[in-house]
Every structure is written in structure tokens, then in C-alpha cells.
Simulated assay, not measured.
Amino acid sequence: MPQYRSSSVENARKAVATRLRELRLDSGLLGYELADLCGWNKSKVSRLENAVTPPADADIRAWCDACGAEEQAPDIIAASRDADSMYLEWKRLQRAGLTRLQESRVPLYERTKLHRSYASHIIPGLFQTPAYATALLRSISRFHGSPDDTESAVDARMARARVLREGDHRFAFLVEESVLRHQIGDSAAMAGQLGHLLSVMSLPAVSLGVIPFSAQERNMWTLESFNIFDDTRVHVELLTAQVTLTAPGEVSMYVRAFMEMRELAVYGAEARQLIARALDGLF
């Protein structure tokens, strides 16, 4: 396990332990008093506060109840769960190839009613054409050294995009103008992708905003790409890993960032004009 990954998990565990300790201190309880209220051996409080032992959901609920902070239990439980699954290396996710990874996300996309996405580097996956996706996924497979199953992975990605036209879903996507200008594949592939983007943005369930280079008084800096699934889950995409966030406080921060980014974007005819300019710049 790379050191930076173990450090990430360790820091997340310590953050949970610190929150538990602060709750105890705020309540005025000593360690042995908290243990008595929860029916535990007194050493368990020390182990939990020092991140020696990861807390179970029931431990967190009992701790919060004893400290008179029941309302904080859901947030701390979510943070504790994130410590195990928050940082998944792409190498691990792509161990069996890219196809399985594409297929594994289908249930999440199908049950999500409101999907919000911010893209700062590439066209969002749901909007990609086969040619663009082929160039992108082949590059990803090469870089991460995963099995080259690009053709079937592209098919799986295209199949996943059916959610744009089926079911009761809404999609609010934002892309930086630089995404339109960064060429993936050859000129023909990029031209086809931009043309498809013009088409897909007219779908009834889709709202697509473009944040122009000329956005005035920008009050949000360019962020890493992220996806928000309803108000319960966020996926943040890094070079080395996917970070999954479910703690309500963190999810709400990404929702807030999305809302502020949305104010910078242009829509409709103005967005189409930016896409058309990028298309013209290819030739």
C-alpha cells in the first residue's frame, strides 16, 4: 500500500477519533464515565479516541447519545465509513479492466434522480461519443497499466448513457470552456464529440452550462472534476484515485461549490456559441 494512501486513511480515522474526543470533552464526561454510560470497558474509550480501534456504527451512536449529541451521529458515522472507502486507487478499481468499472456504476446512475457534475478536464462520461471515449479510455488504460479492454469498456459507457433518455432523472452539468478546447483523439473525433454535445444539451432532462474563459469576477477557482449523486454522495476524480464522500457536511460543501460555479456559466445560445467556436477552431 503506497504511503500516501495509508496516510489518507489514517488521517480520516484520526479525524473521526478527534470528533469523538471533542464531543466527550464538551459534555464534561471523563473517559471512565462515558464507558460506564455505554456499558464498555474503560479502555475502549481510549482506543477509540486514539484511533487504535475503528468505531462501529453502534459505538458512534452510543457515544453521541451519552454525550447528548445524538444529532451528530449520522455525520460522524458517514465520516467513519468514508475512512474505509474514501480513497480507492484507480489501479485497484481497474484491476480487471475498465469494462467492469463502467458496468459497476450503472446501479448508482439508475437510482440517482438528480445528477450534478462539474468537469474541468474532459467531457463528462455520459456525454461522450464512442470515438472520444475510445481515445480517452485507451489513454487511461495505458497510463495506469490496466488490461486493455477498451472496446468493451466503450460499449459499456455508451450503454450507461441511456439514463439520459430513460427514467425519471435530471442532469445538471457544468464544463469549463477549456474542456471544449482540449483535444482528445484526432480532430475528427473531437469534432464529432463537440457536435454530439450540441445535440445532447437539447435533451429535456439535461441542463448544460459552460463556464467561459471570460467569466467576470470569478469567485470560485477551478476545481477537480466531481459528480454529485442526489444529495447523498460525491465522487471526486484525482489522477491516482477516486475519492468518495458521503459525510453530509462534505457533500453539502460540494453542492455549494456547484451552485456558485453555476452562477458563472452560460446556457442556451451562449453555450452553443462557445461550443461552435471550439468546433471551428479544430479546422
Rank of each mutant, 00 (worst) to 15 (best):
A83L: 10
T112P: 00
D148C: 04
K91D: 14
A133K: 05
E176Y: 03
A188I: 15
R142W: 08
I76N: 00
A172P: 10
S146T: 09
V106S: 09
R100V: 12
F127S: 05
L174R: 01
E89G: 13
H196T: 08
S139H: 11
A78R: 00
S152F: 03
P147S: 09
L98M: 12
V154E: 02
A172I: 15
L180D: 00
S139D: 08
E89I: 13
D186H: 15
E70R: 15
L98N: 06
F143L: 13
P147V: 11
F171L: 03
D75V: 01
A131Y: 05
E71M: 13
V154I: 06
P204V: 07
R165W: 10
Q193V: 08
G125F: 03
L93T: 02
D149A: 09
G145S: 07
S207V: 11
R181C: 13
S117F: 12
Q72Y: 07
D65I: 14
D148P: 02
H196P: 00
V206Q: 04
M86A: 14
K91V: 13
P130I: 05
W90L: 06
R165T: 13
E103R: 15
K113D: 09
R111G: 05
G192M: 07
L126T: 06
D149P: 10
E177M: 07
A73F: 00
R162F: 02
V163M: 06
F143A: 14
L108N: 04
G192W: 07
R162H: 05
R92M: 11
D75A: 05
M86Y: 11
A189F: 03
A66D: 00
A161L: 06
P124Y: 10
